[in-house]
Every structure is written in C-alpha cells, then in structure tokens.
Design a protein around this nucleic acid. Structure first.
Lengths: 120, 120
DNA sequence: CCGTACTATATACATAATGTATATATACTG
DNA sequence: CAGTATATATACATTATGTATATAGTACGG
C-alpha cells in the first residue's frame, strides 16, 4: 500500500505557455531549438523529452504560420535550424502578453481569496 | 474572406484551474453545481456550456476521490446536489495553492521580461 | 577505429483535458 | 400549455501534451 499522504502530484499546467516564451526569447535574439530549451528554463521548463517534443512541434507550427522564419546553420556538431521572429510573430507575442496578464489576474484573485479565508 | 488582422484568438488556458476554484468556493460554504457556476465567475469563468460540462465532471470526480461529499436537496425547482468539502479536499486545496503560486512566478518572469525588452 | 556521450532535430502513437451537443426533468410565468 | 429558467448529466469530438523512438553529426577516450 502506498501512503496517500505523500505527494499526490496535483498539477495544472499553463496551457501553451511555451509558445509565448519562445516568441519572447526569440525577440531578444535568434536561436535554435536545442539552445532555446536552455533559455526556456528561465520560465520554469525542465528540458524533459516531453518539453523537447513540444518545443520542436511549436517551432515548426509557428514557422508554418509565418510567426518565425528559419535558416540552417552549419558548424561544429550537427546542423542547427536557427529561428528568427517575424513582425507577425512580434504582434502575436503582444497578444499573448495581454492574455497572460488576464490569466495572472485570475490567479491573483484565487490566491488573494485563498489567503483571506485561510485564517479563520 | 475574413480579416486576419482582427482578433486571432490567441488562447492558453489555465489547465484544471476550475478544480481549485471549486474547492476554494466550497471551503467557504457548501453549494450546488448551478450556484457554484455563478460563484466561479469571480475567477473569470463565463458559465458557458463548456464550463458547465466541465464543472459537473470535476465535481463528480472530486467526490469519487472523496475530496467532496454531496447530498440531495429538495426544494423549489429541480433537486440540487449540494457539495461540501472534506478534510482531504482542504488538503488538496493547499497543494493547489502551492502549485498556483509557482505558476504565477513563471508568469511574472514572463511579463517582467516582456516589459523590459519591449521598449528598445 | 570503435563505442559512448552529447548535440541536434523530428515524428508516430497514446493519453489527458477540454469543448460540443444533447438528454432529462422540475417549476414558474403568461 | 408553451416557453424559460433552474438543475444535472453524459456521449462523442477535438486539442494539447506526454512517451517512445528514429536519425545523424562530432568529440573524446581507450
């Protein structure tokens, strides 16, 4: 029997959060997938294989929608697909920022209420 | 043809956010589904049919896991299934709060960086 | 020069969470 | 007695994410 009282692993992700993080990171400087994953750790991504799969999918999808453009770069090690953000991509990022602000407001309302009633 | 430049409907939900909101609302006072949906609007839920379906699913699921208990209440209108939070449910809520705080931190890092680099 | 590890990209398949659509029933209002 | 609001519920479809695996170049040690 397993102790139910340990870590019941509650989780609720920030859906599609990786997309705006990629756009924001690329607004600063062009980069390729593998390197981007390192940079994404700043936003709480782990760099797990799930994250990797996710990232490559999102990058390709964003390029398809012309939010990013890419070029192959040869050098030491295997070739890299280096992504740059487009103007449309920057606009998309702005929209993401607006949505994320709203989400933060929802979270804040939750946390405020949680703290208020917690101490009866 | 539809103008692409209008609202491209970016969206990223707060996954499973309804669950902690239900728990928090029920920590204050017992309530039934239909009424709970009204209360959830505080946390940014719309009360759409999707939200409804979602809510009833979550409530049943939480009861199955003994995070909530319910009783039928007769009165004016159709009978209501009134939910109360259990001790396990309160503990679950605490775990949710911890996770949500982490998610807020991730969001904050994003928004801070977004604002920083935005004004070049 | 061979195996191992690290860099690098990619995708098929499975699962999980949410959205759509619909069914059922009570009670009030005109 | 038809329409609307209250009230709960679920089958089915879609979307987003996770798991597993494939491929390949380069560096390093033995």
């Amino acid at each position: 029997m397993v102790a139910k009282t340990s870590t019941p692993q509650v989780f609720g992700r920030l859906e599609k959060f990786m997309e705006p993080c990629l756009l924001l990171t690329l607004r600063e400087e062009e980069s390729h997938g593998y390197e981007l994953m390192e940079k994404l750790k700043e936003f709480g991504f782990e760099g797990s294989s799930a994250d990797m799969a996710n990232m490559y999918r999102i990058l390709r999808n964003l390029e398809e929608k012309e939010m990013l453009s890419s070029k192959w770069e040869e050098g030491a090690g295997p070739p890299k697909r280096v992504y740059s953000i487009t103007q449309a991509g920057e606009k998309l990022l702005e929209e993401w920022a607006a949505l994320i602000r709203k989400n933060r407001a929802r979270i804040d309302r939750f946390l405020t209420k949680f703290a208020e009633n917690g101490e009866e």
